[in-house]
């Protein structure tokens, strides 16, 4: 066994590579399901809703984020369809008037001041540019959270600072850190 030493070493390299590339990216995230099996697709198709019908801006320009229960209960005070998801939603949240504990995929870190309205209204950026096809999905994917930093996986995937900077740079709108940080 002349090459035994090299083989053991290579085995170590391979195991580490496997763990680092395949195991680690899974292990670093903690996954949890969303409270309601919400379908953006159904709302877009059947109810004809646009994004801003529910994800609205307030008068002062702040973004209302995920709508509160009042907004949902406006239509779903009683069941409108016959799906299990809707029934569960009404039984668990609408009737007891409990806000669903939504997890926001795109919630930015505490030190970021992200203004939706400057992007959507002034710069005419489409929702899909950052949120991808979320608005046409049929189910909500589980929320994945980084175990150490606590940030959502989506922030890591395509909403990293580098991604923001790349777009800002492209449009010549990169002035200083405090443009986006607070």
């Amino acid at each position: 066994m002349k090459h035994r030493g090299k083989i053991v070493f290579l085995a170590g390299v391979l195991v580490a590579l496997g763990a680092g590339w395949l195991g680690f990216p899974r292990a670093i995230y903690q996954s949890r399901p969303q409270p309601v099996n919400f379908s953006h697709k159904v709302h877009a198709d059947k109810a004809g809703s646009k994004c801003e019908d529910c994800h609205a801006f307030r008068e002062d320009g702040t973004f209302a984020d995920i709508p509160s229960l009042d907004k949902c209960a406006g239509c779903h005070a009683a069941a409108m369809g016959s799906t299990v998801a809707e029934k569960n939603f009404i039984d668990r949240y609408v009737t007891p008037q409990r806000e669903p504990p939504w997890a926001s995929y795109a919630r930015q870190p505490e030190n970021v001041y992200f203004s939706h309205i400057t992007h959507v209204k002034l710069a005419q950026v489409k929702c899909e540019r950052c949120h991808g096809g979320e608005g046409s999905t049929d189910t909500l994917r589980p929320y994945q959270q980084d175990r150490i930093s606590g940030y959502s996986r989506d922030v890591w995937r395509d909403m990293k600072m580098d991604d923001c900077v790349a777009c800002h740079r492209q449009h010549g709108l990169e002035h200083s850190c405090l443009d986006c940080h607070k």
């Binding site: 030493g5 053991v8 290579l10 170590g12 390299v13 580490a16 680092g20």
Partner: peptide, 23 residues
């Protein structure tokens, strides 16, 4: 040797760098 190999291998994965950023 195995441990040495894994350390070298790990350096070529995202794990250690990600752990530094995460912390």
């Amino acid at each position: 040797k195995f441990v040495g190999g894994s350390v070298v291998g790990a350096l070529f994965t995202p794990a250690p760098w990600r752990l530094i950023t995460d912390s």
